[in-house]
Design a protein around this nucleic acid. Sequence first.
DNA 1: CTGAAAGCGCTAACAC
DNA 2: GTGTTAGCGCTTTCAG
Lengths: 378, 378
Amino acid sequence: MVPPCRAVSRTGHPALRSKPVWQSIVKRSERCRSSPSPRLRRVDKPTLADVARAAGVHPGTASRALNPALVGRISPETTARVQQAAERLGYVPDPLGRSLRTSRTHTIGVVIPDLGNPVFAPIVRGIEDQLRERGFEPLLASTDNSAERERDVVGVLRTRRCDGFIVASAGRGEGVVHDLVDAGVPLVLVNRLVDGVDVSAVVSDDAVGIGAAIEHLAALGHRRIGHIGGPLQISVSATRLAAFTNAVASDVGGAGVIEHATDYTIEAGRVAMTALLAREQVTAVFAANDLLAVGGYEALAAQGLRCPDDVSVVGFNNMELTAHLNPSLSTVSMPQYEMGRTAAKLVLDRLAESDGASQTVALPTVFVPRASTCQARA
Amino acid sequence: MVPPCRAVSRTGHPALRSKPVWQSIVKRSERCRSSPSPRLRRVDKPTLADVARAAGVHPGTASRALNPALVGRISPETTARVQQAAERLGYVPDPLGRSLRTSRTHTIGVVIPDLGNPVFAPIVRGIEDQLRERGFEPLLASTDNSAERERDVVGVLRTRRCDGFIVASAGRGEGVVHDLVDAGVPLVLVNRLVDGVDVSAVVSDDAVGIGAAIEHLAALGHRRIGHIGGPLQISVSATRLAAFTNAVASDVGGAGVIEHATDYTIEAGRVAMTALLAREQVTAVFAANDLLAVGGYEALAAQGLRCPDDVSVVGFNNMELTAHLNPSLSTVSMPQYEMGRTAAKLVLDRLAESDGASQTVALPTVFVPRASTCQARA
DNA sequence: CTGAAAGCGCTAACAC
DNA sequence: GTGTTAGCGCTTTCAG
């Protein structure tokens, strides 16, 4: 058996096996395409100057001919010749040279708390797709919910000269967000908002889905409904709490029982549910997040209570595995992928017409009833 | 109620409520702290030339003084002066200029099949941490398991001039991987291997954990053990199948019952388990992946079979939620984060000493028994 | 040990 | 409409 962490093979690439150390110096002079030297590593990519030469025009002209924003300012014939030359040589512009000149890198910093949290994967994916479609590249960074780490990575991304930022990691009083806004950096928040800053954002319209969920519970006869809220430094926790309170007030006419988890994790959910059960006898619980709901399942089981027979549970997010839990979890789904796409769209639009006022887009949520909710016990 | 996808508010945050539309234009000019010229866009970051001027030396000298690789080739006094000037001005080198000159971007392309798959999140995270520690930046791209999309994104990343690649998405006969190797691009595979290519890789030593799992099942008296394998285009499927077969041969002395899933998804697992149950009466099943195991749970339930009472189930990966399934899933855990870190380390090392021979590192796996396995029924 | 100068690949301001 | 020129910020020869 192979011992851990040890190199298993060291054979090396066959083609390069006996390459001398100075190979990389040679590369420079290999530039001419038909070099006789057999050490030729790779045919260096043609530059704009090459294209211009091939088309018999000046580099500046070639640049203009290839720039879609400048149609009409170059004669059709020249344009055609340049484009053909470019095509023939397989020219693809070097973003580095361009960026250095234009001060735009066509990259967007994407800052998220934790890739492992299933909420964010689809959001990131939406961002990625939208950005790539428009020739931009996401630069992803995780913060681990640490403000310090967030500050660090944003710093790195800024020196990398990202053209804009999408931030999903913001706490409600986030300093970095203020910095970015003050610096005039195009910025869009997703999912989590920040207090007192005028900045574009994409959120889910949680009230719709939560309203439907509570209505559903009320219709099943539930009167004592609890809420496991998220940590209050995060804006969505407050939003969902408010939506819950309103819905309960109007649908069952009472106040709900609230317990806040310290974090959006299974363990925190377990702790909060345990505390909730100790405080009051509820027949249904709405958790601000699916992970909290899973923790809730465990707390119930630990007390010998069954879900949904004894206590109905509703989550939030509709993460992939909720449909496969036992019992499958009734939850509120939010259009994460669309939220990501929209966030990307907003930054890019802001980049295009830099006078854009900030705007907030709210995408609808929908309640997904499954097996974790049933008629209230008499 | 808010209609989907429409801007809900344009007011901005309360604090700024009555800002007119041209606010963001104003913002632009607010940028300069005390400049007389109101059009001044932003206080531009100091350049190397600024530092040199402040230190009273030539830019070239300043560059050398700031380059740690050149210690000793610049007088201590000059070095100190330059460094102080840099410090004072808050100089931070522009990677763009540097890259254009040196042809190294300090970026690594990271290609993964699907961010939503919980296997990859920790791997990506390990990569990210290791790269950042060494001043590199990951450029992440998802492939959706599509070879075409993979080709596209790798193309984009290559024109972005990534210094190297980490690929977790490779099918066994992957074309792009061959291209990269042929082009001499530093490359490391993680988790999934590719046939017939001499390239560095980081994998898990699946045989250890799988051996322990089967041993455990054998000790519980299981004799008819099934295997839900993954799709055979992916190398890990073959590895795990082989490990399973060997372990069964040596521990229970027979051949296992094999059924291959078409994909590493819950649904494919359900289908495969159903087929397996139709073929043969097994008392235990080892699934090549946790998602397949979850699908297996459902197939069992659909047939009125209980886990583990009627059929024991073992998964692979130890993804976060497996501990919270019902029953909690016995599984094999692999050190994903470490695998990511190691992969990043390998590319960076290869970058540092470009003569590096390729090497394969196997990190150990460990069997994690939980509630989904029990004594075989008589 | 340091200054001078060239140039990475590209675009934009300025001529004509 | 196109050529010319300069320069983004940096490193690295080449001299001295």
